[in-house]
Design a protein around this nucleic acid. Structure first.
Lengths: 355, 355
DNA sequence: GTAATTATTGTAAACGTTTACAGTCGTAGT
DNA sequence: ACTACGACTGTAAACGTTTACAATAATTAC
């Protein structure tokens, strides 16, 4: 009724604990706790009294204390290399769908390779900040001979999209067959008549892009096509890196008629560089992407690319995580392969007639 | 030396607490704790003994217990609407730069409007899971008359990129002047000679896009241009929604010569729909974006758009957060406006000569 | 060598919950 | 009304730290 809005009562509350509620309701703290956690074990009448006291005091359980006492957080943490990467939208959607249904909350941690040292990563996994860790990134300071996975046995780890080295095959993972997928994509380029096919990798130390490169080389070899020196360039998984790498390829004495990029981000950078160089795509040079991020269809020309079933990966990876948390560990360790799919749009055509 | 790799000692460790370390080192638990937290208050010799015991036992402090006891987590949580959104890359980079320097760890929480109920959001903010919350999303169940900000006074809240309603102006925030920015962008379209300018908004209930719409309307009015009915369409901030909205605009009896999209994502969807309709951009229709995400420059035609200083926003918002945590609350409340910038690329030109 | 001072360590309480166990109350069967 | 049983509630311990305070050891000043 007053002209100025009434003061919210939420500021500066000193901190109300379960004791105050118990006192006000005239019950023991145990009863209050039970009201919150197993309401059917307490009499209706008392429950109401307690409920009343809770709202009266504005009590909210101290999550820190609760987590400590329970020994768990009800949190699942997914670690990914970059938050702005559209590839993860679907994966996260899938993960969320299954974990929230089971009462877990999702938190995300970004690990730009630059910012995360081995120690930090180890500390994160070892700290009990979450009940489980879903790793969607590969740049970890373990595996690949860099050290053991720092699992204390308590917080399970599941890997999505990425493959770990063979020695870590006991860590459950869900991913496509990157070698085969890249092989298929290369085969498609070959089938279109391309012979001079370049490959743009990410970082050389990334298992993921190395697998894709392997598939590319296998397909080339199977088609008896040699891969010229410097046809495999490094695009750093970024737009700018890809543009730079593309310019390199354009100066190559044996200029490729097709460029197979290890992901769509780089393919977009590649398209940009080609456009800047006034080179028609796909008329003069074809471009193949990988991942089928949502922008792939929006590119001009729209990207021909390899699609991953991102939501499925998310769901499967989350399911594996829940299983691991519940202790059904043994049954499902090892890696699970989901299908990929070639998506044909506009950025690939037959090579120019001269070739 | 054996052929198979030695068994990692990390599995199934029952759980080693500070007591075991103390026992092994022959000191009290207090000393162990001090070794970890204030090493200079303990004698060199003992510190070495303890250090030894720590590695021998494989001890790692229980973060849950520590957080509980300390009453804080050393975590800062940033809440954003969608993890796959490239807009946030820069903001997060900025935030990370300043908070990590102060020893905080960043965690991210996604709040797709669909998945987050008012209760959940309130619970999250009220739970002490993080020492502070940086909100980069607007779809919150408070403000705008939906209820008070559930701040318990303990965990500060800072808002980035978004503006809250006036009644919440005590929550610190950092953002551009969205009204003015949209005004400027519209002015640019007008200066190019456009008169029939459409506007594509996000969700109608979003303060952010409403502000931009307001700027658009102001500019139109200032130029004495009327906004035809159904020239303001809803694109839902998504590619598909934008494509749909664009098709609607194409059927409009007074077809616009320019479409101003409230963000780049929608602008890209718009471009896609125009391409599908075989309409040349910008020759036949100009498209103006907003945000200058990294793909804006890669679009074909490259997007003319409004750039936000994302990293700066991140840095400022993080600084406000640290100030708030340190209790320097009063000095910096209220909103802070950072500059925007028009980025002129290819998607806007003069209207076709007939107009 | 003794006293005063400081540096280092130990003791024990506290943080706010949850939960095993014991106790009490209510109800129903006799 | 008494007993027995079940439903409900209370007591108190425990979780693993950190930290105020007390106690001891080492060092310095005489």
């Amino acid at each position: 009724m007053s002209t100025k809005p009434q003061q919210e009562r939420s500021l500066g509350t000193p901190e109300v604990s379960i004791r105050k509620v118990a006192e006000l309701a005239g019950v023991s703290i145990a009863t209050v706790s039970r009201c919150l956690n197993e309401p059917d074990r307490v009499r209706e009448k008392t429950r109401l009294k307690v409920q009343e006291a809770i709202v009266a005091t504005g009590y909210a359980p101290n999550t820190l204390a609760r987590n400590f006492r329970r020994g768990r957080t009800n949190l699942i943490m997914v670690v990914l290399p970059s938050v702005g990467d559209p590839f993860f939208t679907g994966v996260l959607e899938g993960i969320r769908r299954v974990v929230t249904q089971r009462g877990y909350t999702l938190i995300i941690s970004e690990t730009s390779a630059s910012t995360l040292s081995a120690d930090e990563m180890g500390a994160m996994l070892v700290s009990r900040q979450a009940d489980g860790f879903i790793l969607l990134a590969s740049n970890f300071p373990f595996g690949e001979g860099a050290g053991p996975v720092p699992s204390r046995g308590a917080q399970p780890i599941v890997i999505g999209c990425e493959t770990m080295s063979a020695s870590l095959s006991d860590v459950p993972s869900v991913h496509i067959d990157n070698v085969q997928a890249a092989h298929d994509a290369t085969d498609y380029l070959l089938a279109q008549g391309h012979r001079r096919i370049a490959f743009m990798t990410g970082q050389v130390d990334s298992r993921l892009t190395r697998d894709r490169e392997r598939g590319y080389r296998q397909a080339m070899e199977a088609a008896s096509q040699s891969v010229a020196a410097d046809w495999v360039v490094e695009g750093g998984l970024s737009l700018e890196g890809a543009a730079r790498a593309t310019r390199l390829l354009l100066e190559h004495p044996l200029r490729p008629t097709a460029i197979f990029c290890a992901n769509d981000e780089m393919a977009m950078g590649c398209l940009q560089a080609l456009k800047a160089a006034r080179i028609e795509v796909p008329a003069a040079i074809s471009v193949m992407g990988f991942d089928d991020i949502r922008y792939a269809a929006v590119c001009n020309p729209a990207l021909t690319t390899v699609a991953q079933p991102t939501e499925l990966i998310g769901e499967r990876v989350a399911q594996r995580m829940l299983d691991a948390i519940d202790g059904h560990a043994g049954e499902g360790s090892g890696s699970e392969v989901v299908p990929h799919r070639l998506v044909i749009r506009e950025s690939v055509s037959k090579p120019p007639s001269g070739d």
